[in-house]
Design a protein around this nucleic acid. Structure first.
Lengths: 104, 104
DNA sequence: AATAAAGTTTCATTATAATGAAACTTTATT
DNA sequence: AATAAAGTTTCATTATAATGAAACTTTATT
């Protein structure tokens, strides 16, 4: 099976690190994943959009929109959905250490 | 050189588990902790609110409000801030398996 | 093929997130 | 103690997230 480094794939497809396009893509990628995460979680729970909507307290249309990243969701909305799915959600923030830049 | 299959790349981008850590902060994704994450990250970078504001493109007042959870931030806002801080942010969604409940 | 179920899109409305400006307060520096 | 720097709060405005309803499309079932 052919394999790629993460950087190889990303560089080739979307440009080198630090370039505007790359930053934007990674940023959008995060956003895209939100809807994907909701959809996959819902399917894992074997629920229809309508059923999830009932649990959350919204119409199925709204679930559809959330899954398709139709808008820029708030944390509140995100939590309502994942709570309904009985999912544990964590935000992991990693600050790559800048020490080595200084060490030169 | 470490390589990845396409699936592994996906896992890496999405963030499954067992990811490396340096300065890693894990927060339960709750509204009140978002601000804390921003503040601690900013301080880790030794920036004032005004300096971070310049990087993000907003006034220091806005940074202050974000850090104090004055509102229900959107993913977009969150990403703008963490991108300015050169932080990597991952959303971890865990779906506790219901199998064992049934087993009983 | 018909029908039902599931999912999507559009339109319109309401609530509120995002934000600057400026006054204000708290904390640090001299 | 004075002064400067950093951070907070309030007021007002604009953009948009959240949402239902209903028509519509796609997918599954009979």
């Amino acid at each position: 099976m052919k394999t790629y480094t993460l950087d190889e794939v990303q560089d080739k497809i979307i440009g080198k690190k630090g370039t505007p396009n790359r930053d934007k893509f990674e940023y959008e990628l995060q956003m895209d994943l939100i809807g994907k995460a909701i959809k996959e979680s819902r399917q894992e729970r074997k629920l229809t959009q309508e059923q999830l909507g009932e649990l959350v307290g919204v119409q199925k249309a709204q679930i559809s929109r959330l899954e398709s990243n139709a808008s820029n969701v708030t944390i509140d909305t995100l939590m309502k959905v994942f709570t309904a799915l009985k999912a544990k959600v964590k935000l992991q923030v990693e600050l790559p250490n800048a020490k080595f830049n200084v060490a030169r």
